[in-house]
């Protein structure tokens, strides 16, 4: 019942990066979802004016009553600005979902190639967390492009997973560090050499990032039908 709005209470807020905060939401009604899907969030002003936006779920589907959203503060963001500056633990918002075909389930198997630009890592985190719990033997590689190390969402967790999970590899592409590189064909080739031929590739990021990354995957010989993209405005 993706279409029914429900009330959700903010039960935790934590900074992830200078621009991204994690919001833990307790749902009034359980919302079973697939890793990678998103929800619509709706805010209502006292005069009835409403604003809606879509946010990906970062937490794994194991708990359908508590979900984590990670919301990046956008310049002039009407909804992200509310979350950044106004929202507090105990506040209620409305949401509905789950929404979207950008999703991975354990039965789909792997190898799994995940390509993230910036906060586009959020739905991929849900997949990685789900995979670690459900099918840790499925090979997975996260190629994650961020500006600097400080901009890497869930950095400690990702580094810990890369160290602890034999079938998971992390490849950080830091574009604005002194030794920075961009995501390019060579980087994709290195990732594929480590991972093997991916059964599924999931790409998430800004319009420009996701388009360029998906094109690089096609150039590398991955059939288009195996590549799923999720984009947000730039």
């Amino acid at each position: 019942m993706a279409n029914v709005w429900q009330e959700a209470t903010i039960v935790g807020i934590a900074p992830e990066t200078p621009r991204v905060k994690r919001f833990r939401l307790a749902l009034g009604r359980p919302m079973p979802f697939r890793a990678g899907q998103h929800v619509d969030v709706r805010l209502t002003a006292p005069d009835g004016y409403r604003a809606q936006r879509s946010y990906s779920i970062a937490s794994p589907p194991a708990d359908p009553t508590t979900i984590d959203l990670m919301i990046e503060r956008l310049d002039d963001g009407e909804v992200s600005g509310f979350f950044d500056a106004v929202a507090q633990v105990g506040d209620a918002i409305e949401l509905r979902g789950p929404i979207g075909a950008f999703a991975w389930e354990p039965a789909m198997g792997g190898p799994l190639l995940l390509v993230a630009g910036g906060s586009g890592v959020v739905p991929l985190l849900s997949m990685l967390r789900h995979r670690a719990g459900a099918t840790p033997d499925v090979p997975a590689l996260l190629l994650y492009s961020a500006r600097t190390a400080a901009d890497v969402v869930a950095r400690d967790e990702l580094l810990a997973r890369a160290a602890a999970e034999p079938a998971f590899s992390l490849d950080l592409v830091l574009t604005r560090e002194p030794s920075g590189r961009r995501l390019d064909a060579a980087r994709i080739a290195e990732a594929l050499a480590r991972l093997g031929d991916p059964a599924h590739a999931f790409v998430c990021g800004s319009n420009r990032f996701a388009g360029a990354a998906a094109d690089l995957l096609v150039d590398a010989g991955i059939p288009a039908a195996r590549i799923r993209t999720e984009r947000f405005g730039e």
């Binding site: 709706r42 002003a45 009407e78 106004v86 506040d91 996701a210 984009r231 730039e234």
Partner: peptide, 29 residues
């Protein structure tokens, strides 16, 4: 929503926006 005031578009824009939509100058993909 406690504390949410929102940013209403001007009336000429608001009249052309279906419910729940916002205006963009980009052309998202």
């Amino acid at each position: 929503t406690r504390g949410f005031t929102g940013r209403r578009p001007d009336k000429p824009v608001a009249e052309r926006l279906p419910p729940g939509q916002y205006l963009t100058d980009d052309f998202p993909v």
